[in-house]
Design a protein around this nucleic acid. Sequence first.
DNA 1: TAAGTGTACTAATTTGCTTAGTACACTTAA
DNA 2: TTAAGTGTACTAAGCAAATTAGTACACTTA
Lengths: 125, 125
Amino acid sequence: MILIDYRDSRPIYEQVVDKFRLLILNGSLKPEEKMPSVRTLAMDLSINPNTIQRAYAELERRGYIYTVKGRGNFVSDTDKFKDEYKEEIFTRLDEVCDSAYKAGITTGELTEHIEKGSKEGGIGE
Amino acid sequence: MILIDYRDSRPIYEQVVDKFRLLILNGSLKPEEKMPSVRTLAMDLSINPNTIQRAYAELERRGYIYTVKGRGNFVSDTDKFKDEYKEEIFTRLDEVCDSAYKAGITTGELTEHIEKGSKEGGIGE
DNA sequence: TAAGTGTACTAATTTGCTTAGTACACTTAA
DNA sequence: TTAAGTGTACTAAGCAAATTAGTACACTTA
């Protein structure tokens, strides 16, 4: 379901949080869907259950999943996060543009690159 | 010249590398210009000289500065890195676009956002 | 009842960053 | 020549965070 990148310097639990967050926001994991159990996922990824537990606790704290004791963790309804996620993406876009301008890349080059990419990829309208 | 962000979870030496790399690529630091001495910069930032040394070693390894023993560290000619830096920026742009499409943002919204931002900021052509 | 689930807790280990301190070779300017 | 400033190398220690290991307990479901 997810993979750990051991070349990534970020802690494992943080990678797990991010990957699931994206799966949920993307709709790859739908509301009410059951998350892998702490112990199962730990086995699959060959890491300690405590580490998964920590990741799940963070996902719950942020509202992406909810817990039913004895039954498991389940994906929350995350519609309320979608707009905020879009904002986050636009912020990242602004940062990239900022770097681009400083490097001498023009607005035209940026938009052209995006339009070209979207045609070739067949996405984004 | 640069500042350390202690809220940033990345190691100090890595922040130092990144900041100087950008200053150099931006042209804020020009080829042949002298870098602050290891000890001076360590004093200014209130951190250990070893940490600066580590950052400078990394900058040298990557070709952004060169060392003359007994004299100091100097900025390299980095024209050769400029194109590669632009590539890096376009790669980051692609990643953002990828996230955007998955979140349901269209190409039109992306380019519009960029054009609007560049007009208000008065940059990018 | 047994198996699977989340949760809580302590202890130990590991890893990487950072500091502290020392030493040495080089360059420059007084 | 000398003193101050420069980079470099090295060892040791401290520190913080992540991770592992192990155990225990309460809950749910078949």
